[in-house]
Simulated scan of single mutants.
Amino acid sequence: MIAVIADDLTGAAELAGIGLNHGLRTEVSTTVDEHCDADLLVIATDTRSLAVNEAKNIVHDLTVQLQQLKPRFLFKKIDSVLRGHIIEELQSELSASGLKRALIVPGNPHHSKKLIGDTFHYNGAPIHLSDFANDPTFPALSSNIVELLRADGSIKLVNNGDKLPSTGIIIGAAEDEDDLKYWISKTDGNTLLAGSANLFTTLLEYLTTPQRIEIPDPETTGRRLFVFGSTFYQGKLNLQDGKHNNIPVHYVPAATICAETSGDHVHGLFASHVASSIVAGNNAIIAINPDFIKDIKVDPVLLSHKMADIVKQVIDHTSLHELLIEGGATAWAILERLNIEKLYPSKLIAPGVIHMRIAGNNQLCLTLKPGSYPWPAPIWATNNYTCI
């Protein structure tokens, strides 16, 4: 078994899709099942949205539980642009696992996220010049890798060809695929490897022989609700007559966004309106209007829970066959609200965009996508990716 701890749900789903593509029996769960016999077990957390001490405790406890399964390899999925409590979580995982060192290989060269020397680049420019500088929780205010990681002088930066220190937390510079392969080749049984989907793909190519597992394609009828929890791309929605790609867009009311608490009574009328739209046309989008939030301070965690409450009420009003969710924190809040703990990937629609079945639920399924990835064109074909 290969065991992964991911710091958000869409990142966990992304790695599960990669495992599925390599023919591995794959499971995504929010807890560690002592009877799990999957080839790839990805534990999804929401530690990126939590306070640092809470995040550390969760990672420590999960690592202890995973060690009981005696995995062949431990991998820590981190954000490709280094948001989150990366150093602290790795320190916690090292302590719980007994491993001697952690190797962070930042970025995702396949998506133009590269560490060149000590400078992190996104789309060919230092990342602090990009939209990631405006992230509400972990803004990229510097492009220096140590400052991005909020690390201290004990963290060592090494380049392709350098000898790896035997202990501690190490950063491996990665400009291209050859660098990723080099770091994988230098990883041994005493090393906790941390990185993004690009690195994990390289790891699977090194550890496994690709196989093909036949999983039936989903059925093609049903009602779908898109939930755009991330604001990363929402300023770029192309609306025509209130529709995006011919699907009605329903912006969460400003009063709901500004409310100091999350509660069902606040969202009832809006959820009923969205449900009616789905009954009429099978598809609807819930989104956050960037104009509503550009001049106000919004708690992203509270906003995720508000979105989850709305989704629950939409489901109470009408049967759904598929939820398509953008943004890891929003996806996590929705799964918590719906009491979903275990998922099985069934289709890799595009890199990072994964269709999954819900354990114990034959009606509803999920498609998840990180906030910074685009939706692939086929997803907009109505009723194209729903499940039995």
Rank of each mutant, 00 (worst) to 15 (best):
C387T: 10
L99K: 12
L157R: 06
H273M: 13
L203N: 07
G371Q: 03
L368Y: 06
R212S: 07
C365P: 14
G84I: 03
L269W: 02
H111N: 10
E326P: 12
G168F: 03
L303D: 04
T187K: 13
N362H: 11
G107T: 10
N361Q: 07
L103C: 01
A51S: 13
I286R: 00
P109C: 05
L157S: 14
V42I: 09
E54M: 08
G17S: 08
F270G: 13
L335I: 09
P165I: 01
E341P: 09
P253H: 00
K306Q: 15
N245K: 14
I171A: 04
L82Y: 00
K181H: 14
W332I: 11
F75M: 04
S276C: 05
L199H: 10
S277V: 02
V252C: 04
A284S: 00
E34F: 06
G222Q: 10
T318C: 00
D178E: 10
N283K: 03
N339E: 12
V42H: 03
R72H: 09
W375T: 08
P139C: 07
S304E: 07
A381V: 15
A287F: 06
S262N: 08
G327S: 04
T10E: 12
Y182P: 01
N57M: 03
G268T: 11
P218S: 05
A333E: 03
S346H: 10
P126N: 07
H244A: 15
I257L: 01
L180R: 11
G11W: 09
G117D: 05
K306E: 09
E34K: 14
D135Y: 11
F232T: 02
D152N: 11
I116H: 08
L50C: 04
I288Y: 06
G222I: 06
D33F: 03
V64C: 08
L225P: 01
G124V: 01
L99V: 04
T386P: 06
E27R: 09
A280C: 05
I127F: 14
F120H: 13
L324F: 10
V274Q: 00
L343E: 14
E175A: 06
E27Q: 11
K181S: 13
F226W: 05
I315Y: 01
I116T: 07
I286G: 00
E336S: 08
T63E: 12
